[in-house]
Design a protein around this nucleic acid. Structure first.
Lengths: 337, 337
DNA sequence: ATGAAAGCGCTAACAG
DNA sequence: CTGTTAGCGCTTTCAT
């Protein structure tokens, strides 16, 4: 591996000048620049990122923190973030927290130590106060969560409440007369918004009862149990809005176990729009623009890193209802070839 | 942030001595060490990893290369790798290649440049020759693949052929009389082994025909099409062994689309044992010890990094058949609470 | 427009 | 056992 000194020597200039052309900083005569560029080519020179980091500041590395990489939502985020990062010349380190505050704290310490340039944070455990604390030391973009009381926290989120409206209206159109909701953790903004969206529309229906809302935790298992419990109390539920796709899977499994058919007896809708078709029948869901969220998060993070002002700290993206089999009256059996 | 010099000053010793205690290298008087440790505490000193990397060699960073982070198999690997890496004080950078040779090459160039300590490589596109080329520059552990012709390539894989035997025998026991196989890319060792395992047992059955083997590519979509095609030619197939879980999902969707019931008319088995329950009915599958594979890969990689000899270059792990609903005659409907 | 020189914070001979 | 010193490869004033 050749160094900046080799290039300087070959081009007959000082390393300072070489550095200038590497960084496109300061003035360099066209001609000199050309000579240097040629020398770089000839020597197959690549600036050493570690030395640059030590001398300068940036490590061109960002961290992606997710609560549970096994939930397909996060691989999709990861894919988008990584793609965009790669495009921008950044490297992504992956951090799985298992929803543990402790791990999150430890990671952030590592980030500071390793001089990570920025963090894309998906967390339902870390509070606004902690985030703001770390934010002083390192740029952070929050994804799929927000803190309305703390508008200085940059976040990317989608229209959860509107999405919930889409779900409930769709279910009503499909003829449902008793729609239940399996909600996510109420401490989580997006879960709460989805819940409120459900309530917005349902609370005025004559069949409505608060008992139709059961608590999940964004995991399959809990949702399975919740669904079983729900039907013990309300065997006549004919529509379920699950707070995310994973919980919809749990609900579906419960329904099948109880011998109920989807969508004939109960219609089921999820939320997230994860692209891997999890179940048969395929799930109707509200698709968040996951790829866009990841790319946008990366984009905003870079703006933060360069201390450029952001047009808005909170970006709310549109969602759309993807209607599949789990919520529509079964059509004639056809199959695509 | 305090530096090694601050610590030296405070403890009244040279930076060399401080460095010695940091690295536990060379001799340091007990007493001196204590003083230094105290100074480190007092100053809240943390050695700068970047400076260490520049002066020394290791970056304590490894790369995890996966072909498709959306396939749930890889998040499971990622989780295990990251967990073990984190435990060992390593950071993991995530690289998604979309099965593109080009991207893989580019990533390896970045690894070299960034002085990544090692790579855990899941790839079905990179050939043994390329791997050996890179291996000269950077330690590599291959996961879920192997190159029998090139025993110097360290790899972690499981008993795919045996797993396939388990599947076929199980299907036969369940009364299947015509078992098809949706295989993965024949260039991929594990896919081939699974295929051979299938063939080992099936080729002597009176119903056997090579046309019962259809080509998939480890993706849902292709598998769906393959299944449709298969049944056009062989409507009497009553058992399917899919080369991985994702393809089993594709097959299931096709079967449902064609109006066939699983497991009543056709029994279906996958391979991988991904932990997220993908479909209803739940999939019978051959579980690879995914977590163990990830952890072991990380472990071996660290051995390579430290140039310690490996007991064996190729480690083959046991698999086990997980019997679920997709392959067993439907039992009476009970549900767990 | 270019160069000289002083670091960034640490490791690793080498010398005592 | 400990200190001195020379880098690692680059960025960045400060001169010229």
């Amino acid at each position: 591996m050749s160094t900046i000194r080799d290039v300087g020597k070959m081009a007959g200039v000082s390393i300072a000048t070489v550095s200038r052309v590497i960084n496109k900083s300061g003035y360099v005569k066209q001609e000199t620049e050309k000579t240097i560029l040629q020398a770089m080519q000839a020597l197959n020179y690549e600036p050493d990122p570690i030395a640059r980091s030590l001398a300068g500041k940036s490590t061109r590395t960002i961290a992606l923190v997710v609560p549970d990489i096994l939930n397909p939502f996060f691989p999709e985020i990861a894919k988008a973030v990584e793609k965009e990062a790669s495009r921008l010349g950044y490297t992504v380190i992956l951090c799985n927290t298992d929803n543990s505050l402790d791990k999150e704290e430890r990671y952030f310490q590592v980030f500071e130590q390793k001089r990570i340039d920025g963090v894309i944070l998906a967390s339902y455990t870390l509070g606004a106060v902690q985030i703001k604390k770390w934010q002083k030391k390192i740029p952070i973009v929050v994804i799929d969560n927000r803190f309305p009381q703390h508008p200085t926290i940059v976040s990317i989120i989608s229209h959860n409440r509107t999405g919930a409206h889409l779900v409930v209206n769709h279910l009503l159109e499909q003829g449902c007369r008793k729609i239940a909701h399996i909600c996510g953790p109420m401490g989580v903004y997006s879960a709460k918004e989805r819940y409120m969206g459900y309530e917005d529309i349902c609370k005025d229906q004559d069949w409505f009862s608060p008992h139709l809302i059961v608590q999940g935790d964004f995991q399959i298992k809990e949702s399975y149990q919740a669904t079983i419990g729900l039907f013990k109390r309300h065997p006549d539920v004919d529509g379920i809005f699950a707070g995310n796709d994973i919980m919809a899977v749990g609900a579906l499994k419960a329904l099948v176990a109880m011998g109920m058919s989807v969508p004939d007896e109960v219609k089921l809708v999820g939320f997230d729009g994860i692209s891997i078709p999890l179940v048969v029948p395929e799930l109707t869901t509200v698709a968040q623009p996951i790829g866009e969220m990841g790319a946008l998060a990366m984009h905003h993070l870079v703006e933060l890193i360069h201390k450029r002002p952001l047009a808005s700290h909170v970006q709310v993206l549109d969602v759309r209802l993807i209607i599949k089999e789990s919520s529509t009256t079964r059509a004639s059996k056809e199959f695509v070839t």
